[in-house]
Amino acid sequence: MKLIISGGTGFVATELIRQSLNNPRITSVLALARRPVDVPQNLGPKSDSGKLKSVVVQDFDRYPEEVKKQLEGADACIWTLAITPTKSRNMPWDVVKRVCQDYTMSGLEAIFDARGTGKSTPFRFLYMSGIAAERDQTKTPRFMAQYSLMRGETENQVLNFAASHPEQIDASVAKPGLILQPGSMLHWLRATVLWWMASVPSISVVEISAAMLDQVLDGFEKDPLMNDDLVRIGRKALSDNRN
C-alpha cells in the first residue's frame, strides 16, 4: 500500500509514520508537511525507514505538478492536518477554518486527481476529526459551537465528495476524544478532569494510530469511527501485530 499522511510533523502523524514503517503491508509512506519530515525515533527492529518520503507542501491550498507527481498511485490517505480546539482560541477564525476545512478539501481533491485511473480498488480517505464535531448544522453545540460546527461541516464535505465518486473513493471519519501520550502524567490528569467534568473519553496515540492504519488497510468498518470504536480496533490491531 502507498499511504499518504498529512500533517506529517504532528503528534498523531508521527506515530502513524512510526507504525507504518514497521508494517510490511505498507510499502510507501508519503508524509505531507510544510517542512521536511524526519524518521521517527524508537523504530522497531523490523522497521524500514527507507519507505518514508517527505513531501514538502508550501501551500496546502495549491499542489504544484511536481507534488502531484509524487502523489500518483496512492492507495489511501489519513488526513490529520488541523488546528486543535485549544490552539484555535488564539488564532483568527479565517485561518482556523482555512486550515481545518479548506486545506482538507483541497488536499482530498488534489490527491484524488493525482491518483489516476489505473487502480482497481477504491481510494480510502480517513479524515481525523474530533468527538465534539457536529454534522447537523441546525444544532448549537455546547462546546465551542462555531469550531464544532465547522469541523462537522468538513466531515460532511469529505463524505459528500466521496459519495459523488462511489466507485472510486471510500471515506470515513475518525472522531477521537482526548489523545494521550502513554506515560504522560500531564495528559493523564487532563483526561481525568475532562472525563469527570464533561464525560470526554480518551485514547492513546498508539491506539488511535493502530486503529486508523487498520481501517485504511482492511476497509472501513463504519462511519463515523467513534472513540470507543477506535480503542477497540486499535487494541485488537496491536494485539494481532504482537502475535
Score class of each variant (00 low, 15 high):
residue 83 I to M: 09
residue 88 S to I: 08
residue 89 R to C: 14
residue 89 R to W: 15
residue 91 M to F: 10
residue 91 M to K: 12
residue 93 W to V: 10
residue 99 V to W: 04
residue 100 C to G: 00
residue 102 D to Q: 11
residue 106 S to R: 05
residue 106 S to Q: 08
residue 106 S to L: 08
residue 109 E to P: 10
residue 111 I to P: 00
residue 115 R to Q: 03
residue 118 G to E: 06
residue 119 K to L: 11
residue 119 K to Y: 12
residue 120 S to A: 09
residue 121 T to G: 13
residue 121 T to H: 15
residue 122 P to C: 00
residue 124 R to M: 02
residue 125 F to I: 00
residue 125 F to L: 08
residue 129 S to G: 05
residue 129 S to N: 05
residue 130 G to C: 06
residue 130 G to M: 01
residue 131 I to N: 13
residue 131 I to W: 10
residue 132 A to F: 13
residue 136 D to P: 05
residue 138 T to M: 09
residue 142 R to Q: 15
residue 142 R to P: 04
residue 143 F to G: 04
residue 144 M to N: 10
residue 145 A to K: 06
residue 149 L to M: 10
residue 150 M to W: 10
residue 151 R to T: 00
residue 151 R to Q: 03
residue 153 E to M: 11
residue 154 T to S: 05
residue 156 N to E: 10
residue 159 L to W: 05
residue 161 F to M: 07
residue 163 A to H: 11
residue 164 S to I: 11
residue 165 H to F: 08
residue 166 P to K: 00
residue 167 E to K: 14
residue 168 Q to G: 04
residue 168 Q to C: 15
residue 169 I to H: 02
residue 174 A to C: 04
residue 175 K to M: 02
residue 175 K to L: 12
residue 178 L to C: 13
residue 180 L to P: 01
residue 188 W to E: 15
residue 189 L to F: 12
residue 190 R to M: 15
residue 192 T to A: 14
residue 194 L to M: 13
residue 194 L to Y: 01
